[in-house]
């Protein structure tokens, strides 16, 4: 019996959300009185022994270059082999796009109940129940997994990571690898931007900014803070900003440490996507904007007057 976490990589580096999942897996293992191991697919340049700092005891690597591109079907078969060899009965994923593609397949292949979107450690005192977000962040459900093998996919930015000192043993795993049926033709990544799902700070703009030409107010602040940029649905719909920046009920749901909303009124659908943010700041000229009810800090004022002053004040504390 052990806990196995899948560490997702891109361009040879383990994703931040996977370190969070690793630490989460280690805590589950501690609860169950067992150890946490990890599996990494494809060629990785990071020092995997350092995952020991997150509580991982052993990392199984399948470094075949064909695995540098994620094919859900191929990955599922390889991970299932590692599960069988290690006898793992709790499998942990980050609930990112890769996790969402593989975890459901493994749920079927291993006949293991899946909870995706977990936001807390499972309660293992009596059975195995996990709290997850439902109704697009408007509520939580506690789900019982009723199978011997269990899969939990952790929402990014929802677990408090605590690191220690440790070194994981790194071992090569000999797996049978199928040919991928999905051919990756091209990958187009936005270079230099922080991915929205992994960002600790998100600066977001709405229709109150009046047009895409004014987005400097959002992007300048984001750059200073090392933040990702986001927008409300109307802004994406009228193509002021790209669709992948849309946060809300029908866009991306995020949970950064700090969410700064500029010129967004805070419709219930928008709030659903951001209300798990730890601190919410709202800047809006309408004092009746519903967003103020969900905010921690706010300024009732004109963004065009307020934002340049905020940017200057941030420059001062950043020493920029």
């Amino acid at each position: 019996m052990s806990v196995l976490v899948f560490l997702d990589q891109a361009d040879g580096h383990i994703k931040k959300s996977s370190f969070e999942a690793a630490n989460y897996a280690a805590k589950i293992a501690e609860q169950l009185g067992t150890v946490a191991e990890a599996v990494v697919l494809g060629s990785v340049s990071d020092d995997l022994a350092a995952t020991g700092n997150y509580g991982i005891k052993k990392v199984h690597t399948v470094s075949d270059a064909s695995l540098n591109k994620m094919d859900a079907q191929v990955y599922t078969k390889v991970i299932a082999q590692v599960v069988e060899a290690t006898g793992a009965d709790v499998l942990v994923f980050s609930n990112n796009t890769t996790g969402k593609a593989i975890a459901p397949r493994l749920s079927v292949k291993l006949k293991a109940g899946l909870v995706s979107g977990a936001v807390a450690l499972p309660d293992t005192r009596n059975g195995f129940t996990v709290k997850k977000t439902v109704f697009s962040g408007k509520a939580f459900a506690t789900i019982s997994i009723n199978t011997g093998k269990k899969i939990v996919a952790l929402n990014p930015n929802s677990f408090n990571v605590t690191t220690g000192a440790g070194t994981a043993e790194v071992v090569a795993f000999a797996a049978t690898i199928d040919a991928a049926k999905v051919e990756v033709v091209s990958v187009n990544k936005v270079v230099g931007e922080v991915p929205l799902s992994e960002a600790e700070i998100v600066v977001s703009g709405g229709r109150g900014l009046k047009g895409p030409e004014n987005w400097g107010l959002v992007t300048d602040l984001a750059k200073l803070l090392g933040a990702a940029t986001a927008c409300s649905r109307p802004v994406a719909d009228i193509h002021w900003r790209p669709h992948h920046e849309h946060v809300g009920q029908t866009g991306l749901a995020i949970a950064p440490n700090l969410y700064i909303a500029i010129g967004i009124s805070g419709a219930i659908q928008h709030l659903a996507g951001v209300n798990r943010s730890k601190t919410i700041v709202v800047i809006n000229k309408d004092p009746e904007a519903p967003f103020f009810k969900a905010a921690d800090y706010g300024i009732v004022g004109d963004a065009f007057e307020v934002m340049p002053k905020i940017i200057d004040a941030v420059k001062k504390i950043k020493g920029a």
Partner: peptide, 30 residues
């Protein structure tokens, strides 16, 4: 088969309330 079941639902705790900063002193927010 059914592999999972819902035990309970709950709503997130209400926010404590917004702390408003004057528009004349945005640096106070920072």
């Amino acid at each position: 088969d059914s592999l999972t079941s819902v035990v309970t639902f709950d709503l997130p705790p209400a926010k404590a309330g917004v702390k408003l900063v004057s528009a004349d002193q945005p640096e106070e927010l920072v």
